[in-house]
């Protein structure tokens, strides 16, 4: 019984994977590199703008800086990833963008709840910070997946529950998302220390952690994409 189920599952994976390969645009290493580069540049530009035009940074005014970052980053992420949507024939580009936009608040809610369970401060004065932070986290985690996969539950499950990506596009979504979450988790550790530095406040160091994790994971995912591409080439040969 159990084995049968497993087999079925495997079959469905293979079927889906193959359909995915057929229906979505296949992603070359170069494309992946540019997607990640643009996302990373988006973050950098947002931080640069905040620093030079508004004279704020994460430490001095976390909620405004975070808002600026996600405002800059959200069009970049949705527009970029919508390009790689599954099933491009049946799903228009605009629809994919719309899905991404819808996922933004939903993902923010999930992230905020997760943060609160883990101990993020709750209170009126922390509310804007938490909201802005969770929107940013949503951009790193949920929005790309929503733009690409839409409501395909099996894909979501494979990305975030099984953590078993098996093609370049999935690497590009899954690994940075996990990197951001793990980075944020690690970033929370300095918070209780008694160094009394301003960056130990919620959500400054968590944001730093998340961004670092995100950037590192993008490099890693690029590596995976390259390796995957090579293997694919070998197979073809």
């Amino acid at each position: 019984m159990q084995e049968e189920k497993k087999k079925n599952k495997k079959k469905s994976y293979i079927a889906k994977a193959s359909t995915a390969e057929n229906s979505s645009r296949s992603v070359s290493a170069l494309q992946a590199f540019f997607v990640h580069l643009i996302c990373g540049l988006g973050l950098a530009i947002a931080l640069w703008v905040a620093h030079n035009f508004y004279a704020i940074n994460l430490v001095s005014d976390p909620s405004r800086t975070l808002r600026l970052i996600w405002i800059v980053q959200s069009p970049i992420v949705t527009l970029l990833y919508s390009w790689f949507r599954l099933d491009p024939e049946r799903c228009s580009y605009l629809k994919a963008v719309g899905r991404g936009m819808l996922a933004l608040p939903a993902g923010a809610l999930v992230n905020a709840l997760g943060a609160i369970v883990l101990g993020a401060p709750v209170g009126i004065e922390y509310l804007p910070k938490t909201i802005n932070w969770s929107v940013l986290m949503s951009l790193c985690t949920f929005v790309p997946a929503a733009s690409v996969f839409g409501s395909s539950w099996s894909h979501w499950q494979r990305m975030f529950a099984h953590t078993k990506p098996n093609e370049p596009l999935e690497y590009m979504i899954c690994i940075p998302a996990h990197g951001a979450v793990i980075g944020a988790w690690l970033g929370a550790w300095p918070m209780p220390l008694d160094w009394e530095r301003p960056w130990q406040e919620w959500p400054v160091c968590v944001t730093y952690g998340a961004m670092t994790g995100y950037l590192v994971a993008m490099v890693v995912s690029l590596g995976f994409v390259v390796v995957h591409g090579r293997r694919q080439n070998l197979k073809r040969d």
Binding site: G114, V117, L118, G119, W185, A188
Partner: peptide, 9 residues
């Protein structure tokens, strides 16, 4: 509680 929540997640 942070660790417990992590295991919960």
């Amino acid at each position: 509680i942070f660790l417990l929540a992590t295991t919960g997640i």
